[in-house]
Simulated assay, not measured.
Amino acid sequence: MNRTPSFVGAVLDFTPTAFLARLALVSAYLVGGIDKLGDWPAALAEQAHFGLTPPALWATLTIAVELTGSVLILSGRLVWLGAGMLGVFTFFAALVANAFWTMPEGPERFGAMNAFFEHMGLVGGFVLVAVLAHKGRRDA
Rank of each mutant, 00 (worst) to 15 (best):
M85D: 02
L37T: 07
V96Q: 12
E105I: 07
G38P: 03
V123M: 08
L72M: 09
E46I: 12
F89L: 05
F116D: 08
L81K: 01
V65N: 10
L20Q: 11
V71D: 12
G32Q: 09
A10H: 05
A43T: 00
N98Y: 14
P41V: 12
V79E: 00
L81N: 04
A18K: 05
G9C: 06
G87C: 00
P104R: 13
M103A: 09
G124D: 12
F117N: 06
L67P: 07
W58M: 11
I63G: 10
L86M: 07
G124I: 12
L122H: 07
A56R: 13
L20Y: 14
E118Q: 15
M103K: 11
L122Y: 15
E46S: 15
D35Q: 14
W40D: 02
M1I: 01
L95W: 00
L74N: 12
A64N: 02
V88K: 00
V131W: 08
G38D: 10
I73G: 09
P5Q: 06
F7W: 15
A140Y: 05
G33H: 02
N98V: 08
L128C: 05
L25G: 07
A18L: 10
L67Y: 08
R137F: 05
A24P: 11
V131N: 11
A133W: 03
L86V: 03
F110T: 15
L37W: 06
L44Q: 11
L86I: 09
L128N: 04
L44F: 05
F19M: 07
T17D: 08
D39Q: 11
K135W: 09
L57C: 03
A130C: 02
E118D: 13
F126G: 09
H134P: 13
L81A: 11
G125T: 07
V127Q: 10
A28D: 05
S6E: 12
R138L: 15
G124W: 11
D13I: 02
I63Y: 13
M85V: 03
T4R: 04
D13P: 00
L81H: 00
G69R: 06
A24V: 14
S75I: 01
G76Q: 10
L132F: 08
V127T: 11
L12P: 09
G124L: 06
F89A: 01
L86Q: 01
L20M: 14
F116V: 01
A112C: 10
